[in-house]
Nucleic acid binder design. Structure first.
Lengths: 235, 235
DNA sequence: AATTGACGAACGAACGTTCGTTCGCCAACC
DNA sequence: GGTTGGCGAACGAACGTTCGTTCGTCAATT
């Protein structure tokens, strides 16, 4: 990659990052290209040297973010094998992504509908891929059970599995709406709370569940790449 | 209330309902007053006979909706006393509201930031009221435990309680993003899945928890008033 | 019972502003 | 010296809002 292309790519990333921040605050329709120009230091028209249109910009933002998130999840999961821990890793991966890139995550959650029809399908596919990863992790916990042998095993009704998976996604995704580092503990605390709720609920004591001490709590050491660096760019 | 005022109130409600639908689809900034005029059959300028501005309209929409939701929750809870059932009732109340008024709920979740500063405080207060209702229900389950006596009782760390409550809200609030009646079962199914996850988690068996058969499953018979009827107007 | 007049409710047209986007031109770099 | 990346100016369209006006309705006055 020539330095020329590198510079271009860097500035595309900067613009996307600024756009994410503005869109997170005001919504896609609430951000104007003039706002974005001011935030990036470019002139309005210069932005069109990097993105064909405002909608293309949104599409690229969402696609990159989802791909980064999916890759990070796969990467985190590849060394963990027992069901409960895998679920924790999955949860923590996304919570961490949230905390590091709150703006982007907010855009991902809010502005799917603002995409032009052509790009919507691509994002939907990515979203389904991501959902499947989460659902597999949930299904494994379901199937394995947490108790020694007395707990129920086997398959679950698919619809119920979907509902449970969506609910767990809900816990994670909702983090953007409330999490304040100074008030609500570390990202690890949040991930543990969610994981504990998902596996054991509010009240149950689930003896065979790995204590959270045993879980890969320092997962965060491998820093997720800056949002906009595609996986190929990080190695 | 004169028929004159009644008619006016009715049309205000109609406009708000139409606005909710449009805002749910396109976001607040994505809906123009011309869109709203077309959807309601009014001329653009006539809308200003009912609302002072676009922002006032959003504020009124959110305030009415929250008040309706809070009243419905309090109403549903007043006859239920054991902790687990109260949590179920709370969950189901909101899930039902979701299913009946998906548009409004979506606006409630997405467009809080689009409010002018003056109205934001009012909505925030309502939101905090509602949060407290949910947190009390969660705290009671926490404190009471579900098992006979071997389960832990007593108070929980407040921060952990908040995290758990927010997570449960997350499950409920995320319903808007995925629930499709033809795919995912009845609203009762959804509420039961969430309640089960909240109380018992994915795998634990929690003997003393009331089976869902015993829970007020037919809560839905008392239909929540149409969104826009303020509590004072329903009696 | 007919006339009047005040008023609520609707409208189309137009306001000034801001929107996303395009164009032509200029400076800097290979 | 051509290519790239930058800009201000300008575009038509759409934005939220206001304005002057009209047209029923209905109570009070004749």
């Amino acid at each position: 990659m020539t330095p020329r292309q590198q510079r271009l790519e860097q500035q595309r990333s900067d613009i996307l990052q600024a756009a994410a921040s503005l869109i997170a605050q005001r919504g896609f329709h609430g951000m104007s290209m003039r706002d974005l120009a001011e935030a990036t230091g470019f002139g309005v028209s210069s932005l069109y040297n990097y993105f064909a249109s405002k909608e293309e910009l949104l599409a690229e933002l969402q696609i990159r973010a989802f791909e980064t998130l999916i890759d990070a999840a796969n990467d985190s999961l590849k060394d963990t094998h027992d069901a409960a821990s895998r679920l924790y890793v999955f949860i923590f991966n996304q919570v961490r992504y949230f905390v590091d890139h709150a703006d982007i995550m907010r855009v991902l959650i809010h502005e799917a509908a603002a995409l032009p029809a052509e790009h919507r399908q691509r994002v939907r596919t990515l979203k389904e891929d991501y959902f499947r990863i989460g659902r597999d992790a949930v299904a494994a916990v379901f199937a394995e059970g947490c108790g020694p042998k007395e707990s129920a095993r086997g398959t679950v009704e698919p619809v119920a599995l979907d509902r449970a998976t969506y609910s767990i996604f809900g816990m994670i995704n909702w983090v953007w709406a409330w999490y304040e580092p100074t008030l609500h503990g570390t990202p690890e605390d949040v991930a543990r709370s969610i994981h504990s709720l998902a596996v054991c609920g509010l009240v149950a004591r689930c003896p065979a569940t790995p204590t959270h001490d045993q879980l890969p709590g320092s997962l965060g050491q491998r820093q997720v790449s800056l949002l906009m660096n595609r996986p190929t760019a990080t190695k």
